[in-house]
Simulated assay, not measured.
Amino acid sequence: MNRYDEVLVALRRIIRATDLHSRQLSKVSGLTSPQLLILQLLRQHSELTVGEVAQRVSLSQATVTTIIDRLEKRALVKRERGSSDKRKVYVYLTDAANAVLLNAPKPLQESFVQQFQDLHDWEQTMILSALERVAYMMDAQHIDASPVLDIGRLDRTDGNL
């Protein structure tokens, strides 16, 4: 096998692992990875605006607004205007979200992050450099992406993988 074929196989394995995990997450919890990431973020921080959520998950505010709209329809989050500044709208978890989070599997990136952090600094730099180069070679350097291992549209409906 040519080296480029080996690289393409490795990329395909990464994509496939992400796909399988996303399907398992959706099957078990009914959530997409970005939805789970946002719910976990809201659990860690008691009071965030949509803009603050977007900034922390590295997604556009429009994408996060759509995701939060879907979570609100499922009664997993609620929005409330700030008491001191009525222009600000904060997003909060509901009790239903806390129950869902108890049973939700860990995001795929949690395992990756732990193993990545165990690597030496030079190994981390090599991996980052190689992946950035691959993204550039695939003309993907300008694609809006968050640190969420998931496939499909980030604001898709729950049943639509």
Rank of each mutant, 00 (worst) to 15 (best):
V7S: 05
I14A: 11
Q55V: 10
Q24K: 15
S29G: 01
Q35S: 03
R56K: 10
Q44Y: 14
E52N: 10
H45P: 03
L20A: 08
L11A: 10
G51E: 12
S58N: 12
V53H: 07
R12D: 15
T18C: 01
Q40A: 06
V7T: 09
L11P: 10
G51C: 12
R43W: 03
S22I: 02
V57D: 03
S46K: 13
Q61C: 04
Q35Y: 06
A17F: 03
Q61D: 11
V28A: 06
L20F: 08
E6M: 14
T18G: 09
E6I: 09
H21V: 03
P34C: 10
T32F: 02
D19C: 02
H45R: 11
Q55S: 14
D5S: 14
R56L: 13
I14G: 14
R56Q: 13
A10L: 15
A17S: 10
Q24C: 09
T49I: 03
A17N: 08
Q40N: 11
V57L: 01
V53F: 07
K27S: 15
T49S: 08
S33H: 07
G30W: 00
V53D: 06
V9A: 11
L31W: 00
L39I: 01
L42K: 06
R16P: 09
L59W: 07
I14R: 09
L37K: 14
A54M: 05
L48M: 13
E47K: 15
L25K: 00
T18D: 05
V57W: 00
P34K: 05
L39V: 01
Q24H: 11
D19S: 07
I15D: 12
E52R: 15
I38G: 02
V28W: 06
I38T: 01
Q40R: 10
E47N: 06
Q35P: 03
T32E: 04
Q55Y: 12
A17M: 08
D19N: 06
L42C: 08
L31Y: 03
V50H: 10
T32L: 11
I15L: 15
R56A: 10
T18R: 05
A17I: 05
L48Y: 05
K27Y: 11
H21T: 04
V28Y: 04
V50T: 13
A10K: 12
Q55W: 10
V53S: 08
S29E: 00
L20M: 13
Q24D: 15
L11E: 06
S60R: 03
L42D: 02
L37E: 13
S58T: 08
K27L: 12
G30L: 00
L39Q: 00
S26M: 07
H45N: 10
E47G: 06
V28T: 11
R13F: 12
L31F: 00
